[in-house]
Simulated scan of single mutants.
Amino acid sequence: MCKWILTNGASASSHLPCCCLLLLFLVSSVPVTCHDLSQDMLSPEATNSSSSSSSSFPSSFSSPSSAGRHVRSYNHLQGDVRKRKLYSYNKYFLKIEKNGKVSGTKKENCPFSILEITSVEIGVVAVKSIKSNYYLAMNKKGKVYGSKEFNSDCKLKERIEENGYNTYASLNWKHNGRQMFVALNGRGATKRGQKTRRKNTSAHFLPMVVMS
């Protein structure tokens, strides 16, 4: 094609203005190459350059699928209050008496067994007897007791187990790396946290709705 332009341009030089001849000469002198854009789009260089440019963005520009787990808000769960009775697998209602003693009772109408369960963090609750105004707590040594004031011992991790019962483990204290759970033995007495395990049914409680 370029050869055709040069040859015919020379023979027609007498009929074309000088500017046209100059334009024809310039066009004919530019090398014409066929460029396949699809190859660039699929070439490793293009892929690597695009990935490297995307990786240069700060972490705040990460994809929503990866970032959503960290930025999702659960504020609507905090402050949730439930009035419940905790019925143990051993058939005791957990109660906190006016002196702060924690134990189990068989009496369904025991006022000290009516509890207020409040969400303080995600998956963390505070359990308080409405009648005695004591919080369910566990200290560093695994002792379960009633606390008049809310403190770090009162933060319990609430989890629904496979059998549908709930477990309540100390948020801040562990024994040899193991979680310690609120549990009632077969006599309705509290167990030391060191002697409890998640799968022990003595640590399993069924929250029962209390009608106002």
Rank of each mutant, 00 (worst) to 15 (best):
F150N: 10
V144A: 05
R69W: 07
V209Y: 10
A183N: 00
K83V: 05
F93P: 00
I160D: 07
N176D: 14
W4A: 12
S50V: 15
A67P: 01
T196S: 00
L206K: 15
Y168T: 01
V120Q: 06
K191N: 02
R198E: 14
E158L: 06
N163P: 01
C34P: 00
L26V: 07
N109P: 00
F205Q: 12
V30M: 12
Q194P: 05
R72G: 05
I122D: 14
F57W: 05
S202W: 03
R84Q: 15
I96L: 14
V71A: 01
H15D: 09
F205S: 12
S49I: 13
K155W: 02
L184P: 02
G79T: 00
S63F: 07
T7I: 09
M211Y: 09
V127F: 10
S53W: 11
V120S: 13
M208L: 14
L37H: 15
T196F: 01
A46G: 04
G100F: 04
G177M: 06
T105E: 06
D36Q: 06
S51K: 09
S170K: 09
L136R: 11
S14P: 08
I130V: 15
L206Q: 13
V124Q: 04
V182Y: 04
G186V: 01
N185M: 01
G188I: 08
G104R: 07
S29I: 01
Q194M: 11
R82G: 05
L156G: 03
T33W: 12
K191F: 03
G186E: 12
K91R: 15
T167Q: 00
V30R: 09
L94P: 01
M208F: 06
Y87W: 13
M138H: 04
Y165M: 11
S14Q: 15
L77I: 00
D40L: 14
F181S: 09
N99K: 14
T190Y: 00
P64L: 07
K157S: 04
P44S: 06
V32M: 09
H15G: 13
K3R: 11
K191S: 04
S88N: 02
K91V: 10
K3P: 04
K95R: 15
K3Q: 13
W4V: 14
N166Y: 07
K83W: 04
V127A: 11
N200P: 06
S119K: 13
S53N: 05
S212R: 11
A12Y: 06
N99W: 11
E108H: 13
V71Q: 00
T105H: 08
G193E: 05
M138Q: 13
